[in-house]
Design a protein around this nucleic acid. Sequence first.
DNA 1: TATTGTTATACTCTATAACTATA
DNA 2: TATAGTTATAGAGTATAACAATA
Lengths: 139, 139
Amino acid sequence: MSRAMRHPLDPMLGFHLVRTANLALRAVNAAYGDLGIRHPDGAVLLVIDANPGITQSSIGRLLNIQRSNIAPMVSRLVDRGWLERRPGKGKTIGMFLTESGQRIMPAIHAASTAGENMITTSIGADAYAATLETLKRLR
Amino acid sequence: MSRAMRHPLDPMLGFHLVRTANLALRAVNAAYGDLGIRHPDGAVLLVIDANPGITQSSIGRLLNIQRSNIAPMVSRLVDRGWLERRPGKGKTIGMFLTESGQRIMPAIHAASTAGENMITTSIGADAYAATLETLKRLR
DNA sequence: TATTGTTATACTCTATAACTATA
DNA sequence: TATAGTTATAGAGTATAACAATA
């Protein structure tokens, strides 16, 4: 194959969004690696830490994850002793961090910023802020 | 659950990158739906159309797809009569569009821009261009 | 009716290893 | 050694459907 190749997807933002998202997720998963969890688990822990008593359905709406996929994740985190379920109104169940779960949150916070740091050092703080503002406008 | 919830991932660009990428891929896959293919297939066809005779390994490098994952995709597209393999130097095999493949390219091009259009109408042309420039800097 | 939690299931995409063949 | 094509396999992530319980 000759050296110079045409890349018809290079001028498409969607392609670079997917590519950059994958790079960021890779960095985050590597940082979470020591804890034996992956990025969706970390996101769930962060949301529960910020919203004690939140339901699984609400977590799913915040993170764009189906509630049918939240259930097994929560079960694993409960098995590891980091989360506990407490019955709420009706069929709802509130999620809370255990003491053990609270102790690992500093590590979760640190690891969750690995992707952010990678992006920031690569594109600069100004571009980071501008892109964040831009993408937050998208619905 | 009370109305106002904290969203600890909302200030993180990585979260919005993943979310926006998923929205764009959803739009692209919906547009490709009529053709019975999905976004990786469309990307492969676009790359081959722009680079007749390109090898599978080179396609993978351009699109960040393992060559072990390119092989079955190409086989499906060959079975559908859109691609053909022609032996090249050594063990290399050049990929080419068939006549049938060339005839569907206008539809492929049109569908591939579905994600772009969704993003552009949502954030505006200026933000689109700025974000594209920013993300292209990332390695 | 609508929502919650849950299980089951299937599909897409990705990752790794191993093998043969060419250079 | 390095690269190309291929097969097999495993894993992560996502999607839909269905059900019982509750409001």
